[in-house]
Simulated scan of single mutants.
Amino acid sequence: MKSIKVIVIGFILAVALVAWPVEYTRNITAGIGFILGAVLVAWLGVRRRKGAWKGYEDDVRRYTGTTMMKVVWIEESVDERWEHQEDGSDRL
């Protein structure tokens, strides 16, 4: 809940700085607002990526299993098929 408040307040502050009506500080405040917005978006991306990685680790732990096995037979097979050529002939 705390992070949502930080995000909402940060974006409100960023929009307020971009839309600041004072003419002689407009470029400075707009720049600060855009930088603040960019930092918040980057922070959200990092948080989301960390959450996704934790979910992946949990899935790997939950759904990965190993067992001891012994290979008893290896068979190699080759698929053969006929291809129809443009001149009407077939080729293996």
Rank of each mutant, 00 (worst) to 15 (best):
M1D: 10
M1R: 11
M1S: 12
K2D: 09
K2I: 12
K2S: 07
S3F: 10
S3E: 12
I4A: 15
V8S: 14
I9C: 12
I9A: 15
F11R: 01
I12G: 08
V15N: 08
V15Q: 07
A16Q: 03
L17T: 03
P21L: 13
P21A: 13
P21Q: 13
V22H: 05
V22T: 10
E23T: 13
E23H: 11
N27S: 12
N27G: 05
I28G: 04
T29E: 01
T29L: 04
T29H: 02
I32P: 00
G33A: 05
F34I: 02
L36R: 04
L36I: 01
G37H: 05
V39G: 00
V39P: 02
L40M: 12
V41S: 00
V41W: 03
A42E: 06
A42R: 11
A42S: 14
L44Y: 07
L44A: 15
G45Q: 09
G45H: 10
R47G: 03
R47I: 07
R47A: 09
R47N: 07
R48M: 11
R48Q: 13
R49G: 13
R49L: 15
K50P: 01
A52M: 11
W53P: 02
G55Q: 01
D58W: 13
D58Q: 14
R61N: 09
R61M: 12
R62C: 04
T64S: 15
G65W: 12
T66E: 13
M69H: 08
M69R: 11
M69F: 09
V72A: 07
I74W: 05
E75N: 11
E75K: 05
E76G: 02
S77H: 01
S77Y: 06
S77D: 00
V78M: 09
D79N: 12
D79V: 11
E80P: 03
E80T: 08
R81K: 15
W82P: 04
E83P: 03
H84G: 06
H84A: 11
Q85W: 08
E86F: 11
D87K: 03
S89P: 05
R91V: 13
R91L: 10
L92P: 02
L92S: 05
